[in-house]
Amino acid sequence: MDRQNSDDIMRFLDGMASSDDVLFGFLDEGNQSPEDFPDSGNLNGGEDTDDVDENSNCNSEENKAFWQEQEQLLQGTLYRTSSIETKIRQATKEALREVKSKGLHCVCRRPVAGGCRSCLRGEISRHLRDVACYDCVISKSKWRSSQDIPAGEHEYIEIVDRSDPKKGEMRVVIELSFRAEFEIAKGGEEYKRLISRLPEVYVGKTERLRSLIKILCIAGKKCLRDKKMHMGPWRKHKYMQAKWLRTCDRSSSLEAAMVSETTEPENWVPLVKPRVSMLNYDGSFSNGMGRSAAVTVV
């Protein structure tokens, strides 16, 4: 189970209260002109993106131009947010405020003082479903090992919006620790600056997420190559896509909470009705009157 120290949870909630713009990082419609950013629509397509030129000349001018381009693409992608995404983002802010005001109580089998990340997801999902009336669930992606990437699994919040019949269903992903998913401990200054532009909490449709993943994986590969560091398979484009963009199991946060609340203590031993077999039979059975009658085995 995905767990996080309670101190980190409190810092997360305190950061939400102090600066929504920093935490969510998105530019709502109308705040800036689209001409301020280059078109990032060409990033919506494409599959694997381990396509940074291995033989590119890493002189200072080219290096500077590369990082400027990635930052502009990132900003442009974050700008293009729809009205539906803006509404869900606002509802998520309200849900986080409610959790902070009431406090987070862990209902896991092994409770964590101050709450854990899994329970925080459950509370946010429950608020978005029961209060904001969205079709909101906790989704769990799970993928098998392949030649390129190892097996893994990931949980996040997902809303399916059907308010616009012309556009059909829209999947909106809510990732509470989005920036942390792309952080590199020994990353260069340019990469760290790019990552700092990311929202801590991602709330957006899957098409936008697909574009962000591509931008960040290209930047991550260049960062590691320039520092002559090995790129782990868990940082590859296919692996990051698998976390949010593959078919997932969707479950109600309420159901998940009920399972957690009714989970027995760790030292609980279930009462199992013993089976009768010729290997453990003691030569007697109950006759329904509370007495045992002898049985002759022949």
Rank of each mutant, 00 (worst) to 15 (best):
D48V: 15
V297F: 11
P199T: 12
K192L: 13
S6N: 06
W67Y: 06
E29H: 07
K221P: 00
M231R: 08
L224T: 03
R89V: 08
V99G: 00
M278N: 08
N63Y: 07
S252F: 07
C136T: 11
L279N: 06
Y191F: 14
G46C: 04
R117L: 14
K100M: 11
S101I: 11
E175I: 10
C119G: 02
G220W: 00
V272A: 04
L198A: 09
F37S: 05
G114M: 05
L43C: 03
A151N: 13
R89T: 11
D51A: 05
S145N: 12
E35H: 08
A256W: 01
G220D: 02
N31L: 15
A95G: 02
G30K: 08
E69P: 02
E190M: 09
N63S: 10
R291I: 11
E85A: 05
N63G: 03
K140Q: 09
S101K: 09
L194H: 00
N59Q: 07
P274M: 11
G204I: 10
P165W: 04
E189R: 13
K228H: 06
E123M: 05
P111L: 11
N59V: 10
L198H: 02
V99E: 00
D226T: 05
C58D: 10
G76Q: 01
S277A: 10
F66N: 03
S19L: 06
Q68D: 12
V99A: 01
A151Y: 05
I195Q: 00
W143N: 00
R80M: 11
Q4L: 13
D14Y: 04
R225M: 14
M289Q: 11
T262P: 01
K100L: 14
Q68E: 12
L209Q: 01
V295T: 07
L271D: 04
R171F: 09
E153R: 11
K87I: 09
C248Q: 07
R162C: 13
K228A: 07
D161M: 13
R179Y: 02
F66A: 08
R97E: 05
K227W: 03
T92G: 04
V276S: 04
G15H: 00
D20E: 12
N267I: 14
V259R: 12
C58H: 08
D28K: 09
E62T: 08
K142W: 03
L198D: 03
N63P: 00
E207K: 13
Y239F: 15
N280E: 07
P111S: 12
P38R: 05
E158W: 01
C106A: 04
D51T: 09
A151R: 15
M1W: 02
D135C: 09
G187P: 01
